[in-house]
């Protein structure tokens, strides 16, 4: 028998671990029209997430469109390689990610690094220890007056996207692969071609940098006022 938790957990969406494909026989289609219909029916509900993922990877709307189109083209031409129709989603997102990473690596190998790809400065080395929670948490305040609630209520999706986009490439990619796309650390390390320990350290620093950026944005926007003290005029809902 399991006991119910004495505390209330907030249900939150999280990226699902996707199975990329299976072994077995290739799928069969009656004709080209059925193949096209099958493909489009599955692609259409995924398009916003494909584009959103591409946008977080590339940070540029035109580049995002390019890699989505390229990934869709690859998926269409390789559709006969897909063994399990239920894994279409994971398979397609994996093609998208690989498409981006191939291009990103190609750009990285050029003599001049891409913007945002510079190695972090030594000042960033202790950034992993920064946590928003420590800045916001005040254990003796009621939930509706807490800085945590003020922060989440004032956090707009574009603030979060701006903070993510501000991270240097290696850190942004680590956090997008793991937290947005649901890759394991091992999968991320293989995709990025770096050791597992590097993925861990990049993730840790990426989280610190992201939370620091969100903290600064929240203070600039007045969501969090006066060095972390609650803003004036807060009242219960």
């Amino acid at each position: 028998m399991s006991l119910a938790s004495p505390f209330t957990s907030v249900p939150t969406a999280r990226p699902q671990r996707q199975r990329r494909d299976a072994s077995g026989a290739a799928m069969k289609f009656r004709d080209a029209a059925q193949r096209r219909q099958w493909f489009e029916q599955r692609l259409e509900p995924l398009l916003d997430r494909l584009y959103g993922n591409a946008l977080r990877l590339t940070r540029d709307p035109d580049d995002a469109e390019d890699i989505v189109a390229e990934a869709v083209g690859k998926a269409w031409t390789r559709l006969d390689e897909l063994r399990d129709a239920r894994r279409f989603e994971g398979w397609l997102f994996h093609i998208l990610t690989n498409t981006f990473i191939s291009e990103w690596r190609r750009r990285q190998s050029r003599p001049k690094p891409a913007p945002g790809g510079e190695p972090p400065t030594p000042d960033d080395l202790d950034i992993a220890s920064f946590t928003l929670f420590q800045q916001l948490h005040q254990p003796f305040l009621l939930w509706w007056a807490s800085l945590e609630e003020q922060f989440f209520n004032g956090l707009l999706q574009e603030d979060l996207q701006r903070a993510l986009d501000s991270l240097p490439d290696p850190f942004r990619l680590a956090i997008v692969l793991v937290e947005v796309q649901g890759y394991t650390y091992l999968e991320a390390s293989r995709l990025l071609g770096v050791p597992l320990g590097t993925v861990r350290s990049r993730l840790s620093r990426a989280r610190g940098l992201l939370q620091k950026q969100l903290w600064e944005q929240a203070r600039e926007a007045g969501v969090i006022a006066d060095q972390g003290r609650p803003g004036q005029g807060g009242s219960p809902p």
């Binding site: 505390f7 969406a13 999280r14 584009y51 959103g52 709307p61 189109a69 928003l132 999706q157």
Partner: peptide, 22 residues
Amino acid sequence: EFEKRLRARVAAAGTASAPPRL
């Protein structure tokens, strides 16, 4: 719970309306 809420918001950043052009 705080980290879970923040992660859910980060995960949601992976969705954006695909432009009609695309």
